[in-house]
């Protein structure tokens, strides 16, 4: 094809050729160059205006505009705390049993309570509140210390067996029957068989009968005559399928031998001069959330 450029300057080539294909040497448009300079100026100005240059051991230059993402986050948190203030005040002023009747509080406690739960409670009780060995499930109808909203609230607020809080719920520990020489190993073996029997598991009849006697003498004060547990003592029901530590022979034996005494921290406790671990509104929110999970009474 004959090239007869009539209007434009001849396109230059670099002189390089590969397989007959020439490498053109088209100059850049000038505005492109300006754009390039503009980005340089922008870059310099930006690094002066915003935090940019690293300084040894002390972060970076703060920048003239004083921008800080950390401060932005703090501002955001403060903003939302401000927005939540009214509903939190209402929550603190409302009777615990009346929360469920107020749609605004229900929405708030379901969300804020779930957030508190996932942050502070999930480590022991599980993200879904299903519990773990030694940490009760909060979803079922079986409560060691009672499942009414006020009880849940008090237990969250002051904890259980928390030495830091004078108002904590102080229930007796499960004694260490072997270590403290309360029972002989053989007797422990028999009680274990009895517990297996009353919880509907296969057991040695002879030992269980002997165990029943030992149980009546040593255990009923906490677990009750019928072994169904006593909420006031924090002692679990031994006849159902729910076990805090486990209902098999090995776990039962170990429980009786060395005792148990789980601790729930007090969430209203505060270090000297510091804010309490959780605010009153947070405690109420999480108590209400836990109460709503299906087991609340």
């Amino acid at each position: 094809m004959s090239k007869k450029p009539t209007t434009k300057k001849e396109v230059q080539t670099t002189g390089h050729q590969w397989d007959g294909i020439e490498e053109l040497n088209t100059p850049l448009p000038r505005w492109w160059l300006w754009t390039f300079y503009a980005t340089i100026i922008w870059g310099v100005a930006y690094s002066i205006a915003m935090p940019a240059w690293p300084i040894f051991a002390s972060g970076a230059t703060p920048g003239l505009l004083g921008s800080s993402t950390r401060a932005d986050v703090e501002k955001d948190i403060a903003k939302f705390a401000e927005m939540n203030k009214a509903v939190e005040e209402k929550l603190v002023a409302t009777d615990l049993t009346a929360i469920a009747a107020d749609p605004e509080l229900v929405t708030y406690t379901r969300n804020a309570g779930a957030a508190v739960f996932r942050t502070w409670c999930a480590q022991c009780h599980g993200a879904g509140a299903g519990g773990n060995t030694g940490f009760p499930s909060l979803l079922d109808g079986d409560w060691l210390h009672g499942g009414a909203i006020e009880t849940i609230y008090t237990n969250v607020k002051h904890g259980i067996r928390d030495p830091l809080d004078p108002d904590t719920l102080l229930v007796a520990n499960m004694p260490a029957h072997l270590t403290d020489e309360l029972l002989e190993p053989a007797q422990i073996d028999e009680v274990v068989q009895y517990v297996l029997q009353i919880s509907g598991q296969p057991a040695d009849e002879v030992k269980a009968t002997a165990g029943q006697q030992i149980f009546a003498e040593n255990c009923v004060s906490c677990h009750g005559e019928d072994a169904k547990g006593l909420v006031e003592m924090g002692a679990p029901n031994l006849t159902d399928g729910i076990w805090l530590y486990g209902g098999d022979v090995a776990t039962l034996t170990s429980t009786i031998q060395y005792g148990r005494g789980g601790v729930m921290p007090s969430w209203s406790w505060a270090a000297d001069g510091a804010k309490p671990r959780l605010s009153e509104a947070q405690i109420r929110a999480v108590a209400s959330y836990v109460h709503s999970l299906g087991g609340g009474q």
């Binding site: 499930s137 979803l139 079922d140 029901n237 159902d240 729910i242």
Partner: peptide, 16 residues
Amino acid sequence: RDPLFVTQSDGTIRNI
């Protein structure tokens, strides 16, 4: 999924 089911004291199995 967490927990998969809840055992009630009477042995009833609850799924959520």
